[in-house]
Design a protein around this nucleic acid. Sequence first.
DNA 1: CGGATAGTTGACAGGAGTCAAGGTATGTGG
DNA 2: CCACATACCTTGACTCCTGTCAACTATCCG
Lengths: 247, 247
Amino acid sequence: MAASRDPSSPCVTFLKERESDCVHCAIRASALFAELDAAELDQRLKAIHNGLVRSNTIIYSKGDPAEAVFTLRNGVVKLVGADADDAPRILRILGRGAAIGLESIDGGTYAHTAVAMRDLNLCRIPKSALLSLGGQHPGLLTGLATKWREHAYWSERWIGTLCTGKQSTRVPALICLLAEISGDPLSAVRLPRSSDMADVLGCSVEGLSRRMAKLKRKGLLRRVAPWTYSCAPELLTWGRVVDPLGE
Amino acid sequence: MAASRDPSSPCVTFLKERESDCVHCAIRASALFAELDAAELDQRLKAIHNGLVRSNTIIYSKGDPAEAVFTLRNGVVKLVGADADDAPRILRILGRGAAIGLESIDGGTYAHTAVAMRDLNLCRIPKSALLSLGGQHPGLLTGLATKWREHAYWSERWIGTLCTGKQSTRVPALICLLAEISGDPLSAVRLPRSSDMADVLGCSVEGLSRRMAKLKRKGLLRRVAPWTYSCAPELLTWGRVVDPLGE
DNA sequence: CGGATAGTTGACAGGAGTCAAGGTATGTGG
DNA sequence: CCACATACCTTGACTCCTGTCAACTATCCG
């Protein structure tokens, strides 16, 4: 659970760090620089570095000075805040193409702790690069606006489906949401450790475990590999979650 | 609870409608057009109208074509979505200076239902005006970005303090949040009807009523006028909600 | 003065947290 | 390859929180 980070470094250390190749990036269409053309990118983005990060690594911690925004090329990241009792609370889960730390960039410090939930491939965009580009390129702002809109969409789905109702409806909703975020097919959804799922739902691990057990017993969820589950399509009808446990 | 709106109109009808005077608007600094100078405003914003709206009026409904964004000059508005069981769920509460419907403006239809919680004074900015201005004024986009950031901030506080834990901590947190949004002093917070508060917290009205009763019994909440309560400052230490009911 | 809507309170039942014990994985070192 | 340590997950028993149902009261209007 405890993640490792070199405390002497102002920022997470990448494994296999290298300069980014934004022009040929597979996720460019969905990333921040979608609006900039190839020539612009090639010329300006020397400051952006790309690298790998191991599962459980803290990318940044709440309160750290916000020096950079990260773009997630691959993997899944959790943003952790605290609830009223200082218990950890996962506020968002981000998948491929997400911008991480955007909400902090002009606040000075990061508003949450970002932790890798799998091995990741991400790009670090220094604050300075982002600001100087932003001043000159309205197109970048459009990209930012898109990110904010996505953010709003997810927050509301989060509140509407993950924070209300009985556990027996929220757990399946979470599984489906995770499948969607990570891009996994329903036949092989990779689930995080249960304490993470509990921190998303704001429930106890035991409670979560019981619902999962029941889903398995009913044949709606089947373990196909470590951390990987195949879930029945009836598990939820999208948009409107029915209670598959009949509780 | 059911609010009235003229179904034949494509949009909410204002009482006392008139052209807006954005240049002299008291909340301009916090509104969308903060970045535009007075001359620009005066010249371009003929399309923006200002008007009053009665408490309980539906400003727009989920699924309506998104023709306009509204800026709230005064009052409080709730955005209502539905949870997994189709029960109403209040996703956000907006106060003075807020932009309403922003998240829908390029989605075609509104993503929530917006309802006046008090008598309001608001401005209607047609989609077309917003888009044409946006194309020419990067500064407007900065204003938009600010709105999105505020949105993110509130969503996360919402999830962190209103969706987790026992009712006895969440109810006081809600009261304080409402005071902050509406700008009321703690000595005279105007609270909405209890079904609204219950829809924010995702709990039953009865449950809410019990917590309120206990707060009153403990002298932490005192009714000073209809809908208006004075709450003790110990009721919550900001940022970190302690359980004032000791439950 | 009714009639409607909103809020309150009690009794009860079911959901969910907590504590404690045992089980299963995953990884390390011999 | 096995033994062991550690973390993670599961299950049961118990208690407390919270929703539901129902009756009652308060408030607001015309």
